[in-house]
Design a protein around this nucleic acid. Structure first.
Lengths: 121, 121
DNA sequence: AGCATGTGTGAGCAAGTGTTGACAGACAGA
DNA sequence: TCTGTCTGTCAACACTTGCTCACACATGCT
């Protein structure tokens, strides 16, 4: 594996399409590559496949092969590098960050996802 | 413009150099452009300037002009978009994320920055 | 076996990004 | 005012990235 995944993770997260894919997969238990691709009319199937490959290499999604299908799911604890980085930069504002997360946890069960993800690129 | 521009933030964070700059600035109250550039021997001054511009447009750093100098500092609450995204994706693992942040906060009070950025093997 | 389906991969092209070098603006000190 | 310092911006180049098309591989059905 790569020595430090933070590079791969941040690069993977940099693309709006990939964030949308990640968000989409996160809304379900599992999705096949075809199902994911079907959600992006503006994108070809191969493009989605490429994005999935990048997300997989970054450890953000997991792949489960089942016959001809490949099911993708969100990796449970991939945000470590992101959190670690935010920690190192925003040491001072960490309390704030923690409470923000808690707030989101409490009130976020509805759907704050729209503002954050910005699909339909 | 507004900090809700998650695109700009994630794009800015995608570059390792910019993360290093952000991390460096975060370790100090303020740094001038020249001081920042001095930390990166492999980079030219203009390159650093460009990166600072991107970070500034993303709202990650603030600029204070003082005579010929421009002092840069980390913007206090820029991680909102990041947290919002993580929230939307990892709703299920949110408790986990929150505790990860807390752990990082607790363990990181002594000497976090170095290990924090590069871990996650 | 033969064919259709689900999916990844590689080539090639268009678009975006980072770096450098040259130039310009703002300010401090003599 | 003149000069040197600090810094940003512009144009040009090389490199990277994302997309599509064609093809290949694996699997399931008949």
């Amino acid at each position: 594996m790569t020595p430090s995944n933070s590079d791969a993770i941040f690069s993977a997260l940099a693309d709006p399409t990939r964030r949308a894919i990640l968000s989409l997969v996160g809304e379900h238990e599992e999705l096949t590559a075809g199902e994911i691709a079907a959600h992006f009319d503006s994108l070809g199937r191969t493009a989605v496949s490429s994005h999935l490959r990048i997300l997989r290499l970054a450890g953000l999604v997991a792949e489960r092969r089942d016959g001809r299908f490949r099911h993708y799911s969100v990796t449970p604890t991939p945000a470590d590098a992101v959190v670690a980085f935010l920690t190192s930069v925003y040491q001072n504002s960490l309390e704030q960050l923690a409470s923000a997360v808690k707030d989101a946890s409490a009130a976020g069960d509805d759907a704050p996802s729209d503002r954050a993800v910005e699909r339909s690129a």
